[in-house]
Amino acid sequence: MTTRTADELRNKTQMYYEDVSEGQMLPTYVLGPMTPTHVFRWSAAIENWHRIHYDQDFAIYHEGLPNILVNGSWKQSIMPGYLKDLCLPDGWMWKVSFQHRAMIVPGDTLTCWAKVTSKYVKEGMGFIELETGMKTQDDIETCPGTGTIVLPLKGGRAIPYPFVPPKS
């Protein structure tokens, strides 16, 4: 999967619990190359005035960074969005956890990825545990983490919305 379009998301067919298996790599999602304009757009959208994200002189000469940095808060919305898309239309992206390990700078192209580590059924819902990440074009892992998505079973119950986790 490369950067998705509105129509792809509108017409996406459901991935079911039975469709995934342990060890499986799920479709990836590519973003970039990132530019200073992408970074600035995010900072402006959320009113984050931290100069390391748009003031190159400050980032390099005052903070000792290699360039302006792509915001951690941006990645914080990208990873849930990636997992959300995998679950569409009727699954649920329940949990996502990640560390900001490597800096992302303008010029980088990012690939979000997810690998199935285990799966189980609880209360008629299919839970998929994932190892996740966001790699640069140089195969540097910037954002290692984990996730839990909830997929319907074929012919099974609907995933509740708002999401109600299993009792145990």
């Binding site: 903070e63 951690g72 914080q76 849930p80 329940w94 949990k95 990640f98 900001h100």
Partner: peptide, 14 residues
Amino acid sequence: VRVLNAGNEIEMYK
């Protein structure tokens, strides 16, 4: 004085 984002754990419900 310097602050950097280290990571997140997020749970979604609605």
